[in-house]
Computed example of a mutant assay.
Amino acid sequence: MRTITAIRIWLAVFIVGLVLSGVTAFPLQAELTLLSQTLHGSPAPGLLPGLVEWVDRVRHALDDSGTRYPFLSYGTDWLAFAHLVIAVAFIGPLVDPVRNVWVIWFGVIACAGVIPLALIAGGIRGIPLGWQLIDMSFGLLGVIPLLIALRLTTRLPTPHTPAET
């Protein structure tokens, strides 16, 4: 019983991460404005001028596109929705990890896919390497609870399927 509880805790950590990532993709303009103001009110401009310049650049781009082309934000709305839908998929392993171990594997593969996507798309889109590393960290951090849940799941007995006749 302890193993099932531990699996559920690790899967819940992953689900919460997905939900938070999804929900925070909706108010990007407000978040970037707040981040920019916070950075400017801190020692960051002197210590990390490149970071402050990048955040300001992204904030200005979101403000401009939000004013002139608000429909572009619809793409990040769908990104947010996708995170929430993927989180729902992990309810299956939360209830029955052995039967739904494939969903955990799906999550591990998706987390691994974050790294080439960040490097390839980030390079094509002109995203600074430091920001690509931050993006990659989501895959690296996300895979940790999944790998723990996967390892624990393999310790559980598997249900026997009836022999085919």
Score class of each variant (00 low, 15 high):
residue 69 Y to E: 03
residue 72 L to N: 06
residue 95 V to G: 06
residue 87 A to V: 10
residue 59 R to K: 03
residue 122 G to F: 01
residue 158 T to C: 03
residue 128 P to H: 04
residue 6 A to H: 05
residue 42 S to R: 05
residue 157 P to K: 03
residue 46 G to M: 15
residue 147 L to I: 09
residue 84 L to D: 00
residue 161 T to S: 14
residue 27 P to I: 04
residue 104 I to L: 06
residue 89 A to V: 09
residue 25 A to D: 12
residue 119 L to Y: 06
residue 56 D to M: 03
residue 74 Y to N: 00
residue 31 E to P: 12
residue 30 A to T: 06
residue 46 G to V: 09
residue 41 G to I: 12
residue 62 L to C: 03
residue 16 V to A: 05
residue 20 L to C: 14
residue 11 L to P: 04
residue 5 T to L: 09
residue 91 I to M: 12
residue 164 E to I: 13
residue 33 T to H: 05
residue 105 W to P: 11
residue 72 L to Q: 08
residue 55 V to W: 01
residue 123 G to A: 06
residue 61 A to Q: 05
residue 16 V to Y: 11
residue 17 G to K: 11
residue 36 S to E: 08
residue 40 H to S: 14
residue 115 I to N: 10
residue 46 G to I: 14
residue 93 P to L: 03
residue 86 I to Y: 09
residue 9 I to G: 15
residue 101 V to A: 04
residue 29 Q to T: 13
residue 109 I to Y: 12
residue 103 V to W: 13
residue 82 A to D: 13
residue 80 A to R: 13
residue 164 E to C: 14
residue 24 T to W: 07
residue 22 G to Y: 14
residue 155 R to I: 02
residue 33 T to Y: 15
residue 156 L to K: 06
residue 145 P to H: 12
residue 117 L to G: 13
residue 133 L to W: 10
residue 25 A to W: 05
residue 149 A to C: 00
residue 102 W to A: 11
residue 1 M to H: 02
residue 3 T to H: 01
residue 12 A to I: 03
residue 115 I to W: 05
residue 90 F to W: 10
residue 52 V to S: 07
residue 35 L to V: 02
residue 57 R to W: 02
residue 110 A to P: 07
residue 119 L to C: 03
residue 121 A to G: 13
residue 144 I to C: 03
residue 55 V to N: 00
residue 70 P to A: 02
residue 48 L to K: 15
residue 5 T to S: 06
residue 21 S to H: 13
residue 158 T to Y: 15
residue 19 V to G: 07
residue 83 H to G: 04
residue 79 L to W: 03
residue 127 I to F: 05
residue 67 T to C: 01
residue 52 V to Y: 08
residue 32 L to D: 00
residue 62 L to P: 01
residue 36 S to V: 02
